[in-house]
Every structure is written in C-alpha cells, then in structure tokens.
C-alpha cells in the first residue's frame, strides 16, 4: 500500500491589515509574493481585470505627495475590480482641522472596505487600524515602514535569483544611502532578514548610524568595500525633504562616496541586481548609465509593485470580509 504523506497545510492568510513587514512571518511574506506571482499574469492580458474585489471600495488617503505609489494602488485596485476613491488632503476637511481618526471613521461610514494611507507620522496607519473595522494598508508612514515597497523589492529579488537556483538565505543585500530617514530601508531590512538574507546597510555616519547594527544588519560606511560581496544593491533616494540639517557637506561629496556609477558597478559581481525605489535623483545616488543599464531592475520594480499591491488588497480585504462573516 502506498500512502500519501499528509497534504501540506494550505496556507491561510488571516490579516485584515498590512501595517509593516516587521510583524509578518516568513510564511506570510512568501504568501504575498506567491499571490503577487499568480496575479502578475492579469496585467499581461488584453482585458487587464479580474472580478475578485467587485463591489469593494478602496480609498487612497494620502497625506504626503506621491504619484507612483498612489497610481500603483489605484491601478491595482481597479485591476481587481474594486472601486477607488481618491482622497486629497489639500481639498479635505483635514485642512480645516479634522483629526485623523475622524477622517478615517467618516470614510468608513461611506462604506469603504480598505483605507490605503500614507502619512508623514510614523504609526498613523496603526492608529487608524485601531479605530476602524475596514482593512488598513500602510503606503508609507514617516520614517517607519513602507511595506508594499519592501514586498515589491523582495518580489523583484526573488524573480531575479530564483531562476538561478538561489534562495533568500543565499543572498547578501546592500541597502545604500539615507538609512536614517528611510522607511524603505526599514521595510527591506525586516523582510530580508525574516527570509534569511544577509543585509548590509551602507551610508555616511550621519545617515547610517551604527545603532542599526542592532536590527540584525551589518553597518558599513564604505560602499567600495561592500560592493564586491553583495548580490543586490538597493540605492535609496536622498530625501532632501526629510533632511533636517545638512547631513553631508555637499551633493558632490555624497555622490563621490555613495553614488553608484559605472566604475563602481564594475566592482560588483557580474550578475548583481541594482534596485532603486524611485523617484531617482539621477547623477546623485545613481547615474543614468547604471539606472538604465542591464543590471538595473528599476522598471521591473514598478511593474512588480502593481502585482504586489493587487495581492495585498486581495488578501487583506478578503481576510477582513471573512473575519466579519465569522463573528
């Protein structure tokens, strides 16, 4: 008699919210990546839409400027057949003094199923998630987390290295630049370390303090030392809008020590993957030759971001609707 081993437990996604990657298990992160992998195909069809979230309403609640993340969430929701409400802070009652909680509760009273929120304050999405019953998706909160950016970076890394037989635990990733102000760096760090990758944070001491070593990463202040050892270089944008004081003497000096140009790229492994969350300061942290060159995964990141956000909306809204039915 030949008896099958017990069927592997089918993974069930239970989270109504995506607030950060710090909270997610490796299995949950991989579940989002797998779902995104399954949904990627939808965008290649002539009819780029599936009815999974028909009748659901997603609101984009952005308190900070954003073009790509907002458009990406909007398109992702539309590809899943959800209706999208764009809520602009400048035209809203927020400018009249309404609190964040009241704004969220008012949106919920309109019947929205998910709030996609970007806010300059760390923890704002968490505060909203505590007062509403609908799903809350963090689209960037201050310097804290930007989980969908982290997930799309992970997706792009896996898409590049899985066909070469490499797992996350085989990979070494450098995150370069303004680590101190970067929510992208934090989400990447949580996600990558949870999946077993090695992470080195690189930047000037003012933007990449040694305390980050406590979060499970190496810290280095010399990009040239790190480049030959890594499989992925994730170049962060220098965020002029978040720099309270001059963290480096001049743009030229930053670029000389921490910018990725063709000469530096030659120090890397030949199959290195170059990422950048955008928008790029061309000529500052990355040169056009590198950004548009064969090692760059930057446009694939944008493309994958759509599938990742479709997956996140699908899983969170679905789990929240299911939980609501159960009780």
């Amino acid at each position: 008699m030949n008896t099958l081993p017990p069927a592997p437990e089918r993974f069930i996604w239970n989270r109504s919210h995506l607030l950060g990657l710090e909270d997610l298990s490796a299995a949950e992160i991989l579940a989002v990546l797998d779902t995104a992998g399954a949904l990627r195909e939808v965008s290649t069809r002539s009819i780029k839409k599936v009815p999974a979230l028909r009748g659901k309403v997603v609101v984009n609640l952005f308190f900070e400027d954003s073009t790509r993340t907002r458009s990406s969430f909007r398109l992702a929701a539309q590809r899943m057949s959800a209706d999208v409400l764009d809520f602009s802070v400048s035209t809203s009652s927020v400018s009249k003094g309404e609190t964040l909680a009241d704004t969220a509760l008012n949106l919920e009273a309109l019947g929205v199923d998910a709030i996609v929120i970007r806010h300059r304050s760390s923890g704002a999405p968490h505060a909203v998630a505590r007062v509403v019953r609908c799903s809350v998706i963090n689209a960037g909160d201050g310097g804290h987390e930007h989980p969908t950016q982290g997930l799309l970076d992970l997706f792009t890394i896996r898409q590049t290295f899985a066909p070469r037989g490499k797992k996350f635990s085989d990979l070494h990733v450098a995150i370069v630049g303004d680590i101190a102000h970067s929510r992208v760096a934090r989400s990447n760090l949580w996600g990558l370390t949870r999946l077993g990758a090695k992470v080195t944070l690189v930047g000037p001491t003012t933007l990449c303090p040694d305390q980050f070593a406590g979060l499970g990463a190496e810290v280095s202040h010399c990009l040239d030392d790190v480049l030959p050892r890594v499989d992925v270089v994730n170049m962060l944008r220098v965020q002029f809008e978040r720099l309270a004081s001059a963290a480096f003497p001049s743009i030229r000096e930053y670029s000389r020590y921490f910018g990725l140009d063709e000469a530096r790229l030659k120090r890397c492994r030949p199959d290195v993957l170059v990422l950048h969350p955008g928008p790029m300061n061309r000529g500052l942290e990355i040169t056009s030759a590198v950004a548009d060159g064969p090692r760059s995964g930057i446009l694939r990141q944008v493309n994958n971001g759509l599938a990742v956000r479709m997956a996140v909306l699908y899983l969170c809204i679905g789990a929240n609707s299911f939980a609501a039915k159960e009780f």
């Binding site: 993974f11 399954a38 949904l39 990627r40 009815p51 789990a319 299911f322 609501a324």
Partner: peptide, 27 residues
Amino acid sequence: LDITMYRDDTVGIRPMTIPMGTVMNFR
C-alpha cells in the same frame, strides 16, 4: 485556468488561500 479570482464565494466566504495563477499563452 485558476478560477479563484472569478468565484462567487472567494472574498468573505472562504478563508483566503494563495491562488495558483492562470497560464494562457494564446487567445
């Protein structure tokens, strides 16, 4: 064909499992 995204009982009725994806390389 992965019919998960087309079911009448996915969102809110079944627990959320991970879809497999559709592979259709032709019209």
